[in-house]
C-alpha cells in the first residue's frame, strides 16, 4: 500500500495558495488592497500636506505639481485628504463586515446544525429583517442611535448579516449531512466538538469569498450614507463624505469628486475581483479515481 501520490502532502491552505497564485487578476487586486492598506496606515508620513490645513489663496484648484489631486473649497490638499479618508473608509468596511459576521454566523451555524423549530424560528426572523426596505432600515437605525460613522456601520452590518446567516446555514446544512459528521457522532464526539472540529473548518472557506465581496458592498454603503450626511461627520472625512461635499462644486472643480470617487470604484472593484479569485481557488477536492 505504498502507492500514495508521490507529491508531498499539502494541507488545504497550501493547495489553495497554489491555485490562487494562478489567478493573475486577483493577485493584482490583492496587491492593490495591500498597498492601499499600507498607505492608510502610514498616511501621516506619506501625505504631502496636513489634510486639515487650509489655504484660502488656493481654493478649488485643479491638479498641479504642488497639489497632484488639486485643492478643495478651503484650499486643503485633496491627495492628502483622500489618503487620510482611506483610513476611515477601510475601517468602516471592516467594522461593518465584523458586525455582520458577529450577527450572522452564530445563528446560521445553529440553524444549520440543529434544524427543526430552532431553524424555523431563526429563518423567519431573518425573513422579517430582510423584508424591510434596506435604506429605510439603515436610516431608522441611525435615527435611533444618532448619525455617526460607527452607527452607520452598525446599520450596514445589520443589513448584511442575513446573507452571512443564510450562507452559513446552507453550508453547515450540507456539511452536517456529510458522513464524517455522522462518523464523529458514532465515535462519541459531543455536538460542541463536532461543530468546532469538523463543521467550522469546512464551512469557513465560502465565508471568505463573501467577506471580500461584502467589504466592497459595505464600502459603497458607507459612501452612500456619508454622501447623505448620515455617516462620517466633519472634520473627519471618508471617500463618500468627500464626494458628498465635492458634489456642491461639481461645476467648478470636478476633481473634488473624481479622485475620491475613483478611489471608491477601484477599491470596490478590487474587493470583488479578489472575491472571484478566492471562489475559484477554493474548489472542493475531486476524487482521485478516473
Amino acid at each position: 500500500m505504498s502507492d500514495v501520490a508521490a507529491a508531498p502532502s499539502q494541507s488545504g491552505t497550501v493547495r489553495f495558495l497554489r491555485r490562487f497564485r494562478r489567478q493573475t487578476l486577483s493577485l493584482w487586486a490583492l496587491g492593490f488592497l495591500i498597498v492601499l492598506t499600507l498607505l492608510a496606515v502610514f498616511a501621516p508620513w506619506v501625505a504631502p500636506y496636513d489634510p486639515l490645513q487650509q489655504d484660502l489663496d488656493h481654493v478649488l484648484e485643479g491638479p498641479s505639481a504642488d497639489h497632484w489631486f488639486g485643492t478643495d473649497e478651503l484650499g486643503r490638499d485633496v491627495l492628502s485628504r483622500v489618503l487620510f479618508a482611506s483610513r476611515v473608509s477601510l475601517l468602516a468596511a471592516v467594522q461593518a463586515v465584523l458586525i455582520a459576521l458577529a450577527i450572522g454566523v452564530p445563528p446560521g451555524l445553529v440553524a444549520g446544525m440543529w434544524g427543526g423549530w430552532v431553524d424555523a424560528l431563526i429563518m423567519r426572523a431573518t425573513d422579517a429583517l430582510m423584508s424591510f426596505p434596506p435604506l429605510i432600515l439603515a436610516v431608522a437605525i441611525i435615527a435611533v442611535l444618532g448619525p455617526s460613522l460607527t452607527n452607520a456601520m452598525i446599520a450596514v452590518g445589520v443589513l448584511l448579516s442575513p446573507t452571512f446567516l443564510r450562507l452559513m446555514r446552507a453550508t453547515t446544512l450540507s456539511v452536517a449531512q456529510e458522513t464524517y459528521v455522522e462518523a464523529a457522532q458514532s465515535i462519541g464526539c459531543t455536538r460542541g466538538w463536532i461543530i468546532r472540529k469538523h463543521v467550522l473548518p469546512n464551512v469557513v472557506s465560502p465565508l471568505f469569498v463573501q467577506i471580500s465581496v461584502f467589504a466592497g458592498v459595505a464600502m459603497l454603503a458607507e459612501a452612500g450614507l456619508s454622501f447623505l450626511g448620515l455617516g462620517t461627520q466633519p472634520p473627519e472625512s471618508s471617500w463618500g463624505a468627500m464626494v458628498g461635499r465635492g458634489f456642491r462644486y461639481i461645476a467648478h472643480a470636478p476633481s473634488l469628486i473624481v479622485f475620491p470617487g475613483l478611489a471608491i470604484a477601484v477599491t470596490v472593484l478590487a474587493l470583488y475581483v479578489l472575491g472571484d479569485g478566492l471562489r475559484d481557488s477554493l474548489g472542493r477536492e475531486t476524487r482521485q479515481e478516473s
Partner: peptide, 24 residues
C-alpha cells in the same frame, strides 16, 4: 451515558469519500 458506551460499538460507512473529514 450513551457516549460512555460508544467505544463498545463502532461503525464503518459505505462511502469512504465522505466518511473522512477532508480538512484533517
Amino acid at each position: 451515558a450513551l457516549r460512555a458506551v460508544r467505544p463498545k460499538l463502532q461503525m464503518v460507512f459505505q462511502d469512504p469519500y465522505s466518511s473522512l473529514d477532508p480538512s484533517k
